[in-house]
Simulated assay, not measured.
Amino acid sequence: MADLFSPGKIGAIPVSNRVAMAPLTRARADMEGVHTPLAIEYYRQRASAGLIISEATNISRQGRGYAFTPGIYTDAHVRAWRPVTEAVHEAGGHIVLQLWHVGRISHDSLQEGGQPPVAPSAIQAGGLTYIETGFERPSMPRALRTDEIPGIIDDYRNAARKSKDAGFDGVEVHSANCYLLEEFIRDSTNKRDDAYGRSVENRTRLTFEVARAVAEIWGPERVGVRLSPLTKSAGDTPLDSDPQTTYGFLAERLGTLNLAYLHCIEGQTRGDNAKAEFDFQALHRAFGGAYIANNGYDRELAMTTIANGLADMVAFGRPFIGNPDLVERLQRDEPLATAPQETFYGGGAKGYIDFPTFAAAPTS
């Protein structure tokens, strides 16, 4: 039987343990989305994770919604990411890149020519996004025309090819956290009356078509998809009116592609695990493949979840910021460091690559 620290495979990707590093936006790239060399050391330090899922990475200029986040749509992006993947591999780790289009959670100052962001429907997001000069409310989006949607899928294809050129082990399609693909999924943000609106089948169509297109580039066994049925933090986005049915339908549909894994945020990010209010195992069963559980896990819950066969991996987010050697600390049941929140986003090396590993006590 598997335990949290046993090796295995997720799709075609070998993993040295069942601890995944969740995507963590750190906003350390430049305004063109090109990473600085600091990212090489940041990811290398965390290569003992069974699988690193990279920070969310923009598939296009249109897909960008936050300043200083990285991209994967130009050759310059490929050149910046390649030494990152090489460093992770040299340290014995594996890393997939998360493909990201923010949809309406953007600002016209981040868009080419000051254009408005795009969304399934012209509904303005609440909350704040981060531009070069500070925090601002997202701009009013425009609804994508039906004839523009194939171009969005092509942007995912291009990003998938470039992630392959950059040396990643696979990709994760970000269909969570209230960004573009999830905006199509939810009836609260999708008011379309074309082939991508109204019915559950239509609202889940774009996520399915993107996953299928990316799988054609990578092979399905190296593609995962992330979902978040209960998350509403980005843009103060209302939930779908029937998330259990909607996301269950999507999970089953994605399962027909024989993908590497389904990755679910089990509740509100930075909140408690929400298994009691939503049947995430129903999504796991409907998908039929490997499952990565995420949200509110500690050592005990993660170990129990893996031992009981309820997940194939457990993803940890914020603990990996201050604990580059998180896997070793969990295995030894050592205390975890808490990273200061003021260094989460933006800046340089401080709060990024300067956290020490746990010093083992001398043995007699």
Rank of each mutant, 00 (worst) to 15 (best):
A87C: 10
A87L: 06
V88T: 08
V88E: 01
V88W: 01
H89Y: 03
H89E: 12
H89S: 12
H89D: 09
E90M: 10
E90F: 04
E90W: 04
E90L: 14
E90C: 11
A91W: 11
A91I: 12
A91Q: 04
G92D: 14
G92Y: 10
G93A: 07
G93R: 00
H94F: 09
H94V: 03
H94Q: 10
H94D: 03
I95S: 01
I95W: 01
I95M: 15
I95H: 01
V96Q: 00
V96I: 15
V96A: 08
L97C: 03
L97G: 09
L97D: 05
L97M: 13
L97T: 06
Q98N: 07
Q98F: 03
L99A: 11
W100Q: 09
W100G: 06
H101T: 06
H101Q: 05
H101N: 11
H101R: 01
V102T: 13
V102H: 00
V102W: 03
V102A: 10
V102I: 10
V102L: 09
G103V: 00
R104T: 05
R104C: 05
R104F: 02
R104V: 04
I105R: 00
I105A: 11
S106V: 00
S106Q: 04
S106H: 08
S106N: 07
S106P: 13
H107Q: 07
H107V: 02
D108I: 09
D108E: 13
D108F: 15
S109A: 15
S109V: 10
S109I: 10
S109L: 15
S109N: 07
S109R: 11
S109G: 05
L110F: 07
L110Y: 10
L110Q: 09
Q111C: 12
Q111Y: 08
E112M: 11
E112Q: 14
G113P: 14
G114H: 07
G114T: 05
G114K: 05
G114I: 10
Q115M: 14
Q115R: 15
Q115W: 05
Q115F: 11
Q115N: 12
Q115Y: 08
Q115S: 15
P116F: 10
P117A: 04
P117E: 01
P117F: 03
V118G: 01
V118K: 00
V118R: 00
V118H: 01
V118N: 00
A119C: 11
A119M: 05
P120S: 08
P120N: 08
S121E: 02
S121I: 13
S121L: 12
S121W: 08
A122Q: 04
A122G: 05
A122F: 03
A122T: 03
A122E: 02
A122H: 02
I123G: 06
Q124S: 12
Q124K: 12
Q124V: 14
A125P: 05
A125S: 12
A125L: 01
G126K: 01
G126W: 02
G126N: 02
G126S: 07
G127T: 07
G127L: 09
G127P: 11
L128I: 05
L128K: 13
T129G: 04
Y130W: 14
Y130M: 12
Y130K: 09
Y130V: 13
Y130N: 12
I131Y: 13
I131F: 12
I131G: 14
I131C: 11
E132N: 14
E132Q: 15
E132H: 14
T133S: 15
G134R: 00
G134C: 14
G134P: 15
G134V: 13
